[in-house]
């Protein structure tokens, strides 16, 4: 290699590294800023802070509305994830393994709700619900967000299924397993990492979605994003930052649990 080529090479690799570093900073910096603000002693949001206090965190847990909103969102996140697993895994199985016309159309169709703007979907679900007598509630909210993010679960599971060696399921049948036994003991365990990866997304969406939830949530069961929106519209205290700080801590705890139990790379599979 000529020295010139070598220099060009080094520069190219350096540029890629630099971009990665910038991306990393963009990813982490906002969270760090929020966390720093949440410790400020002043009663309004400003940067940099002038003191250190944990008062805002104490306030978060004193505000029953906030705590209830968090619990509501937790419930929605779990329900959305459950619904997406229940609806998404069979849908993915049918899309990939189904032996009738229309499976391809179905696999594209599941994307539609995700491509519609969340607000539009929220309004649509609200009216559709009213038609069958289901008003806005934590259940309608969970269902609407599940419809919104179902595609993520279906697509993740589908891509894993498509890469699964068909001989594995044939071997299982050959060894005496009924179709259901094969599903339960071979297919499902091998899909688990994909289901888990999908579950991370659906849970976060369920916990955090505002666009769909703003129309479909129950007015007595306000989810956290809606509560936070109201908060930032009416006040300007670091309380919002403290709520975000709590969420960040929870996210880190969740990641640590996943890493310790199933391993982070299996989520990437």
């Amino acid at each position: 290699m000529t020295p010139r080529r070598q220099l060009a090479d080094t520069l190219a690799i350096g540029a890629i590294l630099a971009v990665a570093v910038v991306a990393l900073i963009l990813l982490v910096a906002p969270s760090i800023v929020v966390v720093i603000i949440s410790f400020d002693t002043r009663a309004y949001v400003s940067f940099p802070p002038v003191g250190f206090t944990l008062d805002w965190y104490a306030k978060v847990f004193e505000e029953t509305a906030l705590v209830e909103a968090m619990l509501n969102s937790l419930q929605v996140g779990i329900t959305v994830t459950g619904l997406c697993i229940l609806l998404g895994v069979p849908t993915a199985l049918v899309c990939v393994r189904g032996r009738f016309p229309g499976t391809t159309a179905l696999s594209v169709f599941v994307l539609v709700p995700h491509m519609v703007p969340g607000i539009v979907l929220g309004v649509a679900v609200l009216f559709a619900g009213a038609l069958v007598g289901v008003g806005p509630s934590i259940y309608l909210q969970s269902l609407s967000i599940a419809v919104f993010v179902l595609a993520v679960m279906v697509r993740t599971v589908m891509s894993r299924l498509q890469r699964l060696d068909p001989a594995l399921e044939e071997a299982s049948a050959n060894l005496g397993a009924s179709p259901f036994q094969t599903l339960a003991t071979v297919t499902f365990p091998l899909l688990l990492p994909a289901i888990l990866a999908g579950a991370v997304f659906t849970f976060v969406e369920g916990f955090d979605n505002l666009s769909v939830a703003i129309f479909t949530h129950g007015f007595r069961d306000r989810p956290l994003p809606v509560e936070l929106l109201a908060l930032v519209q009416t006040t300007n205290t670091p309380l919002v930052a403290a709520v975000s700080g709590v969420q960040i801590v929870l996210a880190i705890v969740a990641l640590v649990i996943v890493a310790a139990t199933i391993g982070l790379d299996r989520v990437n599979e």
């Binding site: 060696d165 594995l168 044939e170 071997a171 299982s172 049948a173 050959n174 060894l175 365990p189």
Partner: peptide, 29 residues
Amino acid sequence: PVNRRPVGVVFQSYALFPHLTVAKNVAYG
């Protein structure tokens, strides 16, 4: 049906179950 035939197949790719140990693979049937 396939799962009732007294026929054992050794697949070209072996098709071992990757999530099961050797003993559990052998125990599967």
